[in-house]
């Protein structure tokens, strides 16, 4: 039974993929998308009118052979959505590192989910001269608590991808 639960959990966990990775001198544009079902509890809360969000965490590391990898930057993209039950529309907001990146409305839940799970690309600054960079990304839907008090994020695991060299 435990194995079944683990397999089920693995089956419903969304899969995070980096769909776009465009390095440029001093910049890196990355876009991610989530495949699969979002947590049912989260979706229910969204459709029920609660304000929910997806937090995409980007960590950029400089890969070093003999030392631990050096952290070069950390960024957060938070996509928030809240349904207006009176008009049936969903208000969407994307904040990148605490600043509003974009906002808009969606007429349906499906459109809202699509726009939340495939957010806008983000632009990160990187050093001009650097060793190979590693990008770590994960998505978090909400927080649960272990032993009543220890917060635990519900989301994907960290996805690691090597950043190609800028042309």
């Amino acid at each position: 039974m435990i194995v079944a639960v683990i397999l089920l959990a693995a089956a419903v966990a969304p899969d995070l993929r980096v769909t776009k990775l465009a390095p440029a001198p001093g910049r890196l544009v990355a876009q991610v998308t989530l495949r699969g079902e979002a947590p049912a509890e989260w979706t229910e809360a969204l459709s029920g009118g609660a304000k929910v969000s997806v937090t995409y965490r980007f960590r950029l590391y400089r890969s070093r052979s003999w030392l631990w990898d050096q952290r070069m930057g950390a960024h957060e993209l938070v996509v928030k959505a809240e349904r207006d039950p009176l008009t049936g529309t969903f208000a969407l907001t994307a904040e990148y590192d605490g600043e509003i990146l974009a906002s808009g409305q969606a007429g349906s839940l499906e459109e809202t989910l699509r726009r939340m799970l495939s957010p806008l690309p983000v632009d990160m600054s990187v050093p001009l001269k650097h060793e190979p960079l590693l990008l770590f990304v994960r998505a978090e839907f909400m927080t649960r608590y272990t032993l009543l008090v220890i917060p635990r994020a519900v989301g994907t695991g960290w996805v690691q991808i090597t950043v190609p060299e800028a042309p």
């Binding site: 509890e41 809360a45 609660a50």
Partner: peptide
């Protein structure tokens, strides 16, 4: 309803 959903979360 929204408050209920928030409480649920």
């Amino acid at each position: 309803g929204a408050a209920y959903e928030r409480l649920k979360l």
